[in-house]
Design a protein around this nucleic acid. Structure first.
Lengths: 332, 332
DNA sequence: GTGAAAGCGCTAACAT
DNA sequence: ATGTTAGCGCTTTCAC
């Protein structure tokens, strides 16, 4: 049977208050002898403190909530791992939920997290969200937004990635290797992510005095099917292009597939740049040139910021924008 | 400010006991009028019950622990998602930890989970583990092992995959298309997973009256680097082979890369079969023939079994072995 | 039908 | 240097 603080107190012949003090090594006013006795007994009887009970009185559970769209999407495990790594060294556990970018599920998650008294939450929120998280509004725990820059009331911090610069780098690279007809196969333009990247795309073109053509922007979804479909359509419609700048690696990889199926060589005829640098991008043929996103770092930084907030340490920045990195490989 | 059961009780002019009863809709002996009044007040004041407090008295927190080696490894997100999906419909949350197959981290995780009073745990445990989880031994919560079949005391259930049959199917397929010199590039033979697959490999050969050659078994690690290295070595050493049966898709994909780099065509010269069916296996060129593992189902079934145990429902089976499925694609 | 009281395991003043 | 007490928010038994 699990032993409680009472058991240890009784065995040591002291009060529970004393045991509590030595377990949490608070207060130096405990004699060395009782301290040792208590510690020895605790060890002997495999005493594991009950954090639930502790949390009820201290109001801190040492648990943080992590809400992401879908752990099965290769973009998110890096974030989840970064969060957990930092959280665990700080003594926190992670309760994680998937939302499929569904607002109802997000609300359900936040509600459950509140019930469980998490100390804070990290969320990759749906772009569809326009208003605050209703469950989080009347509760004073810090909430950090990751990856998606959405304007929501009550958000205490953000950890983002510079999408403008990322796209700029990718397109600039294509231009620098002589490509001039660069098609941008993007996800939904309702998201800041896609909007910022389009800006970066335009900026790069501008610097090379290349007029922007809106028929070179293909708006779809961030899924692999879209890459194939979009590329196939370009070819069938006879649109002239010599490069593809893709909204993510999945799109890029399936675009390459479409090109191959149409006997168009990569990178000679058409160069392809992806986005994300999911780790299979080095496994495809040709290896994919892509914009590497610091997912792990995003998670890590978010956890760091959150813990700092929870423990009321001084926060340097409550909006961190991480840089992406262009990885030049064989597809360009 | 968050309202408590006391607040609602005061507002409704009843005792906390009454509020508790209506919130948990226990006991029919509550008049319709008070029930409605309480419910209305709870809604109006956004009352969210505190499960931490509740857990302290009921001994159930509606939380389960999920311990996996590394969420960043494409094999695990499917399991994690399956677990969460089933758990959440049953009203449970997931606390997740990564262990990197490190026994110390596993022990640390289990200890934290006990501190947080989880109702049960699902674990993909390290093959290195020989003895029971010490933190879980004197606490009476169910523990379910997933994917790796390890003999540990105190385990209440297992959800596994038929590795013998999976390997048998893969090798049998290679034989059926006329391949006779089939190399098995595997992970460490210290794991039941690898051992069972070797058995399946042998069985298939036997049925075709092909003698087993131990130089056709290359033992390494379940990482992509190993696939390239092993294949490269085979070629350099001039070993004759016409098929590769790989321990996982990462190995297979990088093996294909090595073949291509050596101008060996896939599948004509050498056919390749992977294992796992991580979703990029349809994105590589050629699309990979592989053994599809029911990861999501494993997680889902494990959560189902665990919740059944926690809620003391009748358990049909405490050892589930799921079937794999051969996906024939372009690499064979 | 409803409430009073005890208690889950723990911590935090405040005494002593 | 240690103990007493109250209480975190909730459920549960038993009494009315």
């Amino acid at each position: 049977m699990k032993s409680t603080i009472k058991d240890i107190a009784k065995l040591a012949g002291v009060s529970t208050a004393t045991v509590s003090k030595v377990i949490n090594n608070k207060d130096q006013n405990i004699s060395q002898s009782t301290r040792e006795r208590v510690l020895a007994l605790a060890k002997e009887h495999k005493y594991i403190p009950n954090r639930i009970a502790r949390g009820l009185v201290t109001r801190y559970t040492k648990t943080i909530g992590l809400i992401i769209p879908d752990i099965t999407n290769p973009f998110f495990p890096g974030i989840a791992r970064g969060v957990e790594d930092k959280a665990s060294v700080e003594g926190y556990n992670i309760i994680y939920c998937n939302t499929d970018d569904n607002l109802d599920k997000e609300d359900k998650c936040t509600s459950m997290l509140i019930e469980k008294m998490v100390d804070g939450v990290i969320i990759v929120a749906s772009d569809k969200r326009k208003n605050e998280f209703k469950n989080l509004s009347n509760v004073y725990i810090p909430v950090i937004l990751v990856d998606r820059d959405i304007d929501i009331d009550g958000i205490k911090g953000k950890v983002l990635v510079d999408n403008f610069d990322g796209a700029y780098q990718g397109v600039n690279h294509l231009l620098s290797i002589g490509k001039r007809n660069i098609v941008f196969i993007t996800g939904p333009m309702t998201t800041n992510t896609a909007i910022d990247r389009l800006k970066g795309y335009k900026k790069a073109l501008e610097e090379y005095d290349i007029p922007f053509k809106k028929e070179y922007v293909l708006e779809g979804v961030f899924k692999k099917e879209w890459g194939y479909k979009a590329t196939d359509k370009l070819i069938k419609e006879g649109i002239k292009f010599d490069a593809l700048f893709c909204g993510n690696d999945l799109i890029a990889i399936s675009a390459i597939k479409a090109l191959k199926d149409n006997k168009i060589s990569v990178p000679d005829d058409v160069a392809v740049v992806g986005y994300d640098d999911i780790y299979i991008s080095t496994l495809v043929d040709p290896e994919l040139t892509t914009i590497s996103q610091p997912n792990y770092d995003m998670g890590f930084k978010a956890a760091e910021m959150l813990v700092d907030m929870i423990e009321e340490r001084k926060i340097e920045e409550n909006r961190i924008v991480l840089k992406t990195e262009l990885k030049i490989r064989k597809s360009t």
